[in-house]
């Protein structure tokens, strides 16, 4: 049963990544693109977690944690750069 659920999960998350890519390319404003990249990072974390379940390995958790931190820091840095023209004042 888990195998079929994993197939569905991979399908859904991959479709979500494609939709985010659409918003990233089409996005009318700059912040739309930032939001699309942020969502893509979260979806990639979900994909990594599902890979970890499929191959029954806990090796990928560090990668997921690093991706979470990296996505948050990059989004905040970009927003600060847009707002203030500088990242660290």
């Amino acid at each position: 049963m888990i195998e079929y659920a994993l197939v569905f999960g991979f399908f859904a998350v991959s479709l979500a990544l494609l939709l985010n890519l659409w918003r990233l390319v089409a996005g009318p404003t700059l912040m739309d693109r930032v939001l699309a990249v942020d969502t893509m990072v979260i979806n990639v974390i979900a994909l990594v977690i599902l890979f970890g379940i499929q191959y029954t390995t806990t090796t990928y958790f560090e990668a997921a944690l690093l991706l979470a931190m990296f996505g948050f820091i990059s989004t905040v840095a970009y927003c600060r750069f847009v707002m203030r023209g500088d990242i660290i004042e």
Binding site: A5, A12, L19, W22, R23, T39
Partner: peptide
């Protein structure tokens, strides 16, 4: 059953989030 339904629910919610990102009118 619980693991499978959690995976399916997670996939559905992730997909709904991205569909909302496409469909909704402004930022």
């Amino acid at each position: 059953f619980v693991i499978s339904s959690l995976i399916v629910l997670g996939g559905i919610f992730v997909l709904v989030g991205s569909i909302g990102l496409i469909k909704l009118p402004d930022l």
